[in-house]
Computed example of a mutant assay.
Amino acid sequence: MDDNKPKIMTFNTLILHTAALFLLPLQLIFSVFLLLRGHDEPGGGFIAGLVASGAFVLYLFAHGVASTREIMRVEPRDLLALGLLLGLAAMFPGMLNGEAFLTAQWWEFSLGDTQVKLSTVLIFDIGVYFAVLGTILTIVMSLTESEE
């Protein structure tokens, strides 16, 4: 055994395990709040993606990479690709309507008694959210797996 090899730091405490289980859903809900609020007020896809990735990184530190991949049910690289596709999709409706590139477009429709507004700004923010989440988790999971 090589004594000069760095030891892998593990966070195997009951408090961290419990806190990670409790905080994961709360942080994810808060990240969705920041995401939906952000296209009209401060917040948005970037900070919401950071909050969501923080939730999964906390869970990863407490339970490990394999368990984190299980609860995510999707690979982080796939989230990154989805985010880039949504960002690209938000660019073209303005051009298709004969306006400048990335001009915001709004659509209104009814779902029963509720009036719903959808915009390219929100689609772009969701794309940024998934791109940030996928990037951070890909990096952290890769680093953690290389240490193991």
Rank of each mutant, 00 (worst) to 15 (best):
I47G: 03
G45T: 02
A48I: 00
V51D: 06
K117C: 01
A89V: 13
D78T: 13
F30G: 06
T10F: 09
I71Q: 06
L111N: 10
A89N: 08
T144Y: 11
A66K: 15
F101Y: 08
D2Q: 05
L80W: 09
T138W: 11
V140H: 11
R69P: 03
Q27F: 11
F22L: 13
P6G: 06
V132I: 14
E148C: 00
E41W: 07
G112A: 10
E70Y: 05
I139L: 12
H63F: 14
E145S: 04
P25Q: 11
G44V: 15
T138N: 12
G98Y: 13
M72E: 07
V132C: 00
V74D: 01
M1K: 12
I126G: 02
A52P: 00
T103N: 04
A90R: 03
P25E: 13
I123M: 14
A66D: 15
W106F: 13
G44W: 05
E148S: 03
V32H: 02
L133T: 03
A100R: 14
Y59F: 15
A48D: 02
V121G: 01
W107E: 14
F101S: 05
I126V: 15
L14I: 15
R73N: 07
M91Y: 04
N4W: 02
H17E: 12
E145C: 06
E41S: 07
